[in-house]
Simulated scan of single mutants.
Amino acid sequence: MKVVLLAGGYGTRISEESQFRPKPMIEIGGKPILWHIMKEYLHYGFDEFIICAGYKQEYIKNYFAHYFLQASDISFDFRVEREKDHREIHTSSFEPWKVTVVDTGLDTMTGGRIKRIQPYVGDEPFLLTYGDGVCDVDIRRTVEFHRSHGKLVTMTAVKPEGRFGILDLDGDRIASFREKSKDDVGYINGGYMVVEPAIFGYIDGDDTTLERKPLETIADEGQLMAFKHNGFWQCMDTMRDREKLERLWASGEAPWKVWDK
């Protein structure tokens, strides 16, 4: 299965960083969060990626165009004749993945971006997620669950951590004050979806938001299934989110780091 990554939005809620580069290229531990997501998928055996780019899409293309050199120890010998290769590769440690970066437009909505990459996916099921969130979901089990029910779309359902404390009230008296837990909130769309190619027929064009009419219609038809994930999940909407992910990575205990190297 190919992996489709939505990476074309403006990222306005984290404009401190996104004014300089697309949100999926904001770094955690010196690597773009997009790289972290791709490493998750590679760990489960998925190595072909289609990136739906848009805002500052040239940044993503340049990153992968020079990725081999970034991952290599290399000597440049400019004393040799011009027609000879002046590069000598010593060691390389790059990932064995295929990456297709598609300019899906500057203001295209999420559904429209998916519609635009249809020629690259073809008539096959594919994996789909957003380029700004990481988790420790077992992607292989998600695919197995999708195949077991035979429906159109499987969506990973997660419970986000609460950001505010909870007041337990007994009338007007505060019985207790505690941190908000996952039990206090319902499931939300965590991305990490498995999608049948029939979804393209639910998308009209660039102005279509995937999470509105297409998925709402699919849900009404009983074709949208939830793979419940109660482990770690974190999106990177704000600088606070980025700082949290950075702290986890620096601690050496980042839950989404399921790969060995």
Rank of each mutant, 00 (worst) to 15 (best):
E253N: 15
T217N: 11
V80H: 09
E216A: 12
D136K: 04
K23Y: 06
E221M: 11
T156A: 08
K39S: 13
L42F: 13
Q118K: 15
E81D: 15
G186N: 03
H149E: 00
R113Q: 14
R247G: 04
P255R: 06
A250P: 09
D47T: 12
R212P: 01
R147D: 09
R147G: 11
V80C: 12
F177V: 15
C235K: 14
D132Y: 08
N230A: 12
G8D: 00
G201D: 10
C135K: 08
E16N: 12
L69W: 13
L106W: 07
V102K: 01
I139L: 14
I50F: 00
E48G: 07
G111V: 11
P24E: 05
C235Y: 12
D73R: 14
L210A: 04
G105T: 02
N189L: 11
V121W: 01
L169K: 09
K228N: 10
I114S: 02
G122T: 00
L128M: 10
D85F: 12
T104K: 00
N230K: 12
V102Y: 00
E243T: 11
F126A: 13
E27H: 01
E88G: 09
Q19G: 06
I26Y: 03
V3T: 12
D168S: 10
S176N: 14
Q223I: 00
D73L: 12
F177H: 10
H66E: 15
M225I: 04
R247E: 11
G222L: 05
A175S: 14
E16C: 07
A157Q: 04
E124D: 12
